[in-house]
């Protein structure tokens, strides 16, 4: 089981890094923020799997904190930092 856990954690990390492209590419600010949300969910999954693989239940608390605070960042973006977008180049 151990090898399967680590293989999946590695696979999910690759997923996360692939998602980085969307942060760099945009095109809108919301796209970048959305990608950060994906990172949050993926990191939760990685942490839960690593918690099981290493037998360290404290890592589930880290995942719990991630799940809660990702929402706070996203709300800060929506309420404060979202600029008026330029609708000319909003699709790929």
């Amino acid at each position: 089981m151990q090898a399967i856990y680590f293989l999946l954690a590695l696979f999910l990390l690759l997923n996360l890094i692939a998602g980085m492209w969307r942060v760099l590419r945009g095109p809108t600010a919301a796209d970048r923020m959305l990608a950060a949300q994906l990172f949050g969910t993926t990191a939760v999954a990685i942490l839960l799997i690593v918690a099981q693989a290493t037998g360290d239940p404290a890592l589930r608390d880290v995942a719990l904190v991630f799940a809660l605070l990702a929402a706070v960042t996203a709300v800060a973006f929506v309420r404060r930092a979202w600029p008026d977008e330029d609708p000319r180049h909003d699709t790929d």
Partner: peptide, 10 residues
């Protein structure tokens, strides 16, 4: 819950 709300907001 957080994801659904945030995606609606976005």
């Amino acid at each position: 819950f957080a994801g659904a709300s945030v995606s609606n907001l976005i």
